[in-house]
Design a protein around this nucleic acid. Structure first.
Length: 497
RNA sequence: GCCCCCAUCGUCUAGCGGCCUAGGACGUAGCCCUUUCAAGGCUAAAACACGGGUUCGAGUCCCGUUGGGGGCACCA
């Protein structure tokens, strides 16, 4: 059997990270087994469809490296891959069910339904439908139809007995048929509900494993019965656990907005991760650790390593809250592994997009020292702010002196430093030379000979930031003229005493 | 209300009856290194929800309780 999995989102909002996770597992399984991964758009709820959501969702999937073999944009042998474009198919099979006595036309009006619901509720029946149109005679049906009464098609669920849903992660889940009623499978506008649509699509698209959220488990008996009525072989059901909202309550939903918890930023939508500048490899690595374990106590791995070991059957059935702090850790791990050139390649366009004008050459100088400070590209912005704008100059003596480097020593230090830098040729204005020279000055100027305090205050003078990249790289990045100007200003402040 | 799913450190998890004095990771705390912030090194605190069974033996199997989650639409 070839493995064919799919991700079937409805374009009703933006894709959240839990959706990406579900897509990832399905995709991994298909790739692992050299099968196919299909993207199908479930847009039968036309009222909720949002313009542009489909494009956005495809962008997010591509960003994390999930590609599809068949889908709305690239076609395939079982298309179309957008449900509204498949309407005739659903109509045909809904009619087939009616003809074969598995379904029937229900002419209940919205008012009638509302009233019925109320009466049923009063009796403690929460099913919402009393099956009153289930057993009409053919002539009664014909008469209503002739009168132009709109109708839906409902599937005949068994009146008693049980329906077992085989689930890869939980074994057989058994439901009492009494809790079900006859569900609408084709709406009065001629479009199918999810129940009908996915059964037909998954069958004709030859899907081998249906992966979806547990929220579908309770309605899975309908799907089981539908497959049975059609006489089609059932795919394997894999009901994935929910991803819980990290703020504590409920599941992650499309409506959940990004927010901050403590000093941890909680992102929800897929494109927020992209926008923040996490490396997609890190995000995918992070997600693969949810509900699944690589083994050997390893948390960091490449996707191709993961594919060697992955199995849907090993996925945990327990719901999970995303460990965001681990994403940050992983994100940093991936940046540290990046070559300086590659980091510049990623960082440069990102900073450009965010109106921070720093040359690629400058970035290359900073690259080795900044990469271990990044979890995501956006972390570079405050670090590098001193290069983009003119940082405030020190205004108090306390800022440019140190308890181990009083005003007198500081005055000497700045004077020496200025002279040292002025004496450097353009070729000599590089990290190693500057480091050596400054350490020497620092050692001479500080009691005890440890240049630490000198370097620290100097770093503050040069960058104007309490937090910044290390001194030497920052000096080279800022450039001789600007550094000297700042040192001169500091010296003047000291001299004014 | 009814039905269904789930349950190991704060979080993600390993564990599929004896290898568990419950392992790893993130986070947290302390120490070291250090020009800030990081990164790195070392150390520490931290869990089998509870109660019954089954068994020579239970984190691991069964039942119940509790807790969390989900579902009961002409939404997916």
């Amino acid at each position: 059997m070839t493995v064919r999995t799919r991700f079937a989102p409805s374009p009703t909002g933006y894709l959240h990270i839990g959706g990406v996770w579900a897509a990832l597992l399905a995709w991994m399984y298909a790739r692992k087994h050299n099968g196919q991964f299909i993207l199908r758009i479930e847009d039968t709820d036309t009222k909720r469809t949002i313009e542009g959501a489909q494009a956005k969702l495809m962008e997010s999937l591509r960003w994390v490296g999930i590609d599809w073999d068949e889908g709305p944009d690239k076609g395939g042998p079982f298309g179309p891959y957008i449900q509204t474009a498949r309407q005739p198919l659903y109509q045909k099979w809904a009619d087939w069910l009616v003809e074969n006595n598995h379904a029937y036309k229900c002419f209940a009006t919205p008012d009638e339904l509302a009233e019925m619901r109320q009466e049923l509720e009063a009796k403690g029946d929460h099913s919402g439908y009393d099956r009153r149109y289930r057993d009409l005679s053919q002539s009664e049906v014909d008469a209503l139809e002739a009168a132009g009464r709109p109708y839906v098609i409902r599937f005949k669920m068994p009146l008693d007995g049980e329906t077992a849903v085989p689930d890869l992660l939980r074994g057989e889940v058994v439901f009492d048929n009494k809790q079900f009623t006859d569900y609408v499978i084709l709406k009065s506008n001629g479009l199918p509900t999810y129940h009908l649509a996915h059964v037909i699509d998954d069958h004709f698209m030859e899907i081998s494993h249906i992966t979806r959220g547990v929220e579908w488990l309770n309605t899975a008996p309908i799907h089981v019965r539908l497959f049975e009525a059609f006489g089609w072989e059932m795919p394997v059901f894999v009901h994935l656990p929910v991803i819980l909202n990290p703020n504590g309550k409920g599941k992650l939903s499309k409506r959940t907005q990004a927010f901050t918890q403590g000093d941890q930023e909680i992102l929800v939508k897929a494109d927020e991760f992209m926008e923040a500048g996490y490396m997609p490899e890190a995000v995918v690595n992070f997600l693969a650790n949810i509900g699944w374990t690589f083994g050997d106590d390893r948390e960091k791995f490449t996707m191709s390593e993961a594919l060697e070991r992955f199995d849907l059957a090993d996925v945990s059935a327990a719901p999970a809250k995303l460990p965001y702090s681990k994403l940050d850790w992983l994100g940093n791990q991936y940046f540290k592994d990046l070559s300086d050139d590659l980091l510049v390649k990623k960082l440069y366009p990102y900073l450009q997009q965010h109106q921070i004008d720093i040359s690629a050459e400058t970035l290359l100088i900073l690259s080795p020292v900044i990469k271990m400070r990044l979890k995501k590209l956006s972390d570079a912005v405050p670090q590098l702010a001193f290069l983009a704008e003119t940082p405030p100059l020190p205004s108090t003596v306390e800022e440019i002196t140190h308890k181990k480097m009083g005003p007198e020593a500081a005055a000497t230090a700045y004077k020496k430093t200025i002279a040292f830098l002025e004496g450097l040729s353009a070729e000599q204005f590089e990290v190693d030379t500057i480091a050596a020279g400054m350490r020497e000055i620092g050692a001479a100027v500080i009691d005890g000979g440890k240049p630490g305090p000198y370097l620290g205050t100097l770093r503050y003078v040069v960058t104007g930031q309490k937090v910044s990249p290390p001194l030497f790289e920052s000096v080279v990045a800022l450039g001789k003229d600007r550094v000297l100007a700042r040192l001169v200003a500091a010296q003047k402040l000291i001299d004014s005493l």
